[in-house]
Design a binder for these strands. Structure first.
Lengths: 184, 184
DNA sequence: CCTGAATACATGACTAGTCAAGTAAATTGC
DNA sequence: GCAATTTACTTGACTAGTCATGTATTCAGG
């Protein structure tokens, strides 16, 4: 076939071809993830929460009765603490989470999902599963496996959040992962 | 350890397996894109702009001497107009773009990249290419091609921005797709 | 023409992510 | 056992995305 433009080039109406396959992949990845984010937002929004708030609730449900301190939540979201503090503020205002200063370490604020939060997750469960399946529908089972493998490989690459080795789960306090925030 | 957990399960420290392969793929996609966004942000930030501002500059450079109206930029970013208006405000404040009300249609504001913007893009060019190549480094050339193919398939799926009739990419050149701005 | 509708933006009010700086509690060093 | 450091946040200021609403044009009928 005679030199046709790629799908991404169509979308951004770029005349010039990408200077490298890597750049095309980068743009494709960003745009696809953006599309997914919108699709999932459309699922959770009718329940009055945002996608990030949903993520926090999922993490807290997974933590169970022990709850989690703020920074631990932030760590699992690959996000900075300030954003999580405010996310929790809004979730608490809606009575979806409960927070309490820890007795063992009074610097920590421990967070739990509240009953209303659990119910909300239950209401969203099937819609989110369908959303995920719908979005991934274009991929065959084999494609899906390849896709996950490729994504995992990228996240294990040189830009991985904990570059060298993976973090072990230590019950109290986070493993000393320097978060590779040089300079601060 | 018996029953090995997947890479994504490790990262979010989830005990339960994903309820479906689609859900695992969704989480992997979101997390990988997030990692990429951070990596690219680290490239452009030293030049005093954000990743979105960089995207606008790229689009305007591609438009050339004719420039583009605000909504056309928004369309290529899959974003809403209000955000683009304010992005352009900040870029103009840095003298990286120029704006002027169009003479033919006085409702439109036409935007051009300014000389300083072009220079900035030139300064960033090699670093961005290296950033993209570095991020994609874990993938072989064949993997990279597969990866782009899978992403393209997802974006052509049921959640595509111009879902109704999927745009055929086949053939030479591109059909003058009307950019499908439904409703608004 | 002139009225009503559509178009192209701009503005305001939220939610959210990020960095810088501040505070309180725990830990370490001597 | 007390100062210095580290940790776990919190707060403030800025950039950004989204929805709702407002405004200036343009356009389509009658």
């Amino acid at each position: 076939m005679s030199r046709m433009r790629s799908a991404v080039q169509e979308e951004i109406q770029q005349r010039r071809p990408f200077s490298s396959p890597s750049e095309e992949a980068v743009v494709a990845l960003v745009r696809t993830a953006d599309l997914l984010r919108r699709a999932l937002t459309d699922v959770v929004e009718p329940q009055g929460i945002t996608l990030q708030q949903y993520n926090v609730l999922r993490i807290l449900r997974g933590a169970g009765a022990e709850g989690l301190p703020t920074l631990e939540i932030a760590g699992r979201m690959i996000e900075q603490a300030p954003g999580v503090t405010r996310l929790l503020d809004r979730l608490q205002a809606k009575n979806l989470v409960r927070r309490q200063r820890s007795a063992e370490d009074r610097r920590q604020i421990r967070c739990w999902i509240a009953p209303a939060g659990l119910e909300l997750l239950t209401r969203l469960q099937s819609a989110m599963q369908e959303g995920a399946r719908g979005f991934m529908a274009p991929l065959s089972e084999a494609d899906l496996a390849s896709f996950v493998r490729l994504l995992d490989a990228l996240r294990a690459g040189p830009f991985a959040p904990h570059s060298a080795s993976h973090v072990a789960v230590t019950g109290t306090g986070r493993a000393p992962v320097p978060q590779n925030k040089e300079m601060k």
